[in-house]
Amino acid sequence: MGSNPFKDPACTWGNPPRAGECDPYRFLEEAIRNLLRANVRDGAVADEIPWAPVRKPLAESRISVVSTAGLNMKGDTPFDMETERKRPSWGDPTWRRLTRDVGVETIEANHLHIETRHLLADLDVCFPVPLLRELEAEGVVGEVAPSHYSIMGFQGPDLRRLEPSCVAIADAMVAEEVDIALFVPV
């Protein structure tokens, strides 16, 4: 059973996690854990949350997946790791489109902050488009969208640089009449 943590004055935001809550910091290296805890604790509380009501059953919905794993189709320009290596506070702010028939044979991943060999062995670990195709064939989801998307999750301190890509992805989803955007950050 879920809840709205914004309406819960006792919410600890995972620091520490309460009974029944996931520990959001468990699988983070110590320095990153400390940094993110401080960011969550000291950052401005979100005051405007976008919301679109559910309009169709899942079995009639078109779904698209968004990843932050730095994915590109083979043949497309990969995300820029060389600049990030030279400028460690910089992340590639561009975006890529991936097709609905994507698989481990047709994808590349470039990301300095996660171990990419897991997803390159089995996309469903974090980019479940192959699994969604199965669910489509079974009638569980209505349709897997023609396009799916990736950005680079690491962006350094200024996230505003990512806004043009976010707008472009949203516009592309609207053009393809996507009903559900499933975001799986890495």
Binding site: W13, G14, Y25, V40, D47, A52, A69, V184
Partner: peptide
């Protein structure tokens, strides 16, 4: 999921798995 406090995502399924292997 704690990013929710500052990012305000509409719907979150929290999972205690490593980044890169949420499923």
């Amino acid at each position: 999921w704690a990013f929710q406090r500052i990012s305000g995502q509409p719907r979150v399924a929290a999972i205690e798995f490593p980044m890169g292997r949420a499923l």
